[in-house]
C-alpha cells in the first residue's frame, strides 16, 4: 500500500482535464479529420481507412463523431456537422449516468482495444458517469464494433432487444459504420444503421480514444460546438 501511495505521490493524478482544458497535443503522425483540398469532391469518413498512402491529406483534428450517417460525408460545400447533444429528456436521464454494453460483432479488436483505453487513468471515462457493464439489462446503450458478420447479427439483435428503453446505439469504427474493408463481403452487413437505429457514429480505423471521448461527450452535451 505504501508503495502505491509513494507512486501516487510521485505521479499525482494522471487524468487529463479534457474537456475542461485543451486535449494534449497529438503527434505529427496522427491522422485526424481529412482536409478537403481542391475539387476532389467528397470523402466519406465512414468508408476511409485513414491509411498514410492514400491521396487524402489529414489534419490534426480529432473531432469527427456525428449523429447522422450522412454527416460523415465531408464535402467542399458545407461545414462538418459534428454530433449534437441528445434531447432534453434524454439528457436528464443519461446526463450523469450512462452504462454501456460493448458488442464486438466480428471486430478485429483494434476498435475494442482503443475503446478500452478510455478506461485507463488518462482518459478515465468513469468521471463522466459512463461505465461499461456486463449485462445489457443494466445498460443504457450498446457500442458496436466490427462489420456485424452474419453469425453475429442475431446475437447483436438479441443484445439490442435486451436493453431497456430508452437506449442509445453507438457505431464505433469504420467497419461498424459501413462494413469497412469487408463492405464487399456477403458475410458482412453494410452499416449498422441498416440493422438498428444508430445515435452516434464514431469514424476511424480504429478511432482515436479522444475521438470517441469527444463523440460521447458531445452526445451528452458536455461539449457544445
Amino acid at each position: 500500500m505504501l508503495k502505491i501511495l509513494k507512486t501516487r505521490f510521485k505521479q499525482g493524478c494522471r487524468t487529463i482535464l479534457f474537456p475542461k482544458a485543451k486535449a494534449p497535443d497529438l503527434p505529427q503522425r496522427y491522422r485526424g479529420r481529412p482536409i478537403i483540398a481542391g475539387q476532389n469532391g467528397s470523402i466519406d469518413l465512414g468508408k476511409i481507412f485513414f491509411n498514410p498512402d492514400s491521396d487524402i491529406v489529414y489534419s490534426n483534428d480529432y473531432s469527427m463523431a456525428t449523429s447522422k450517417r450522412e454527416d460523415l460525408v465531408l464535402s467542399q460545400e458545407r461545414e462538418m456537422a459534428l454530433a449534437r447533444a441528445l434531447n432534453e429528456r434524454m439528457l436528464k436521464i443519461f446526463g450523469r449516468s450512462l452504462k454501456l454494453r460493448q458488442v464486438s460483432a466480428g471486430g478485429c479488436n483494434a476498435c475494442e482495444l482503443d475503446l478500452n483505453v478510455l478506461n485507463t487513468p488518462v482518459f478515465d471515462l468513469s468521471r463522466f458517469g459512463i461505465q461499461f457493464v456486463a449485462s445489457p439489462r443494466h445498460a443504457d446503450g450498446i457500442v458496436v464494433t466490427g462489420p456485424v458478420s452474419r453469425n453475429m447479427r442475431e446475437a447483436l439483435l438479441k443484445t439490442y432487444e435486451a436493453i431497456p428503453e430508452p437506449k442509445l446505439v453507438i457505431a464505433l469504427g469504420g467497419c461498424a459504420i459501413s462494413g469497412g474493408i469487408f463492405s464487399d463481403s456477403p458475410q458482412a452487413s453494410h452499416g449498422l444503421d441498416t440493422i438498428i437505429p444508430v445515435d452516434l457514429f464514431i469514424p476511424g480505423c480504429p478511432p482515436h480514444p479522444l475521438t470517441t471521448l469527444d463523440g460521447l461527450l458531445r452526445l451528452l452535451g458536455r461539449i457544445s460546438s
Binding site: 458488442v103 449485462s135 442475431e154 446475437a155 438479441k158 431497456p164 428503453e165
Partner: peptide, 15 residues
C-alpha cells in the same frame, strides 16, 4: 410511465 416489456432471458446473445 415506463411500461414493462417482455423478452427472453439474457443468455449472452447465445442463439
Amino acid at each position: 410511465h415506463y411500461p414493462v416489456r417482455l423478452t427472453e432471458t439474457w443468455s449472452c446473445g447465445y442463439v
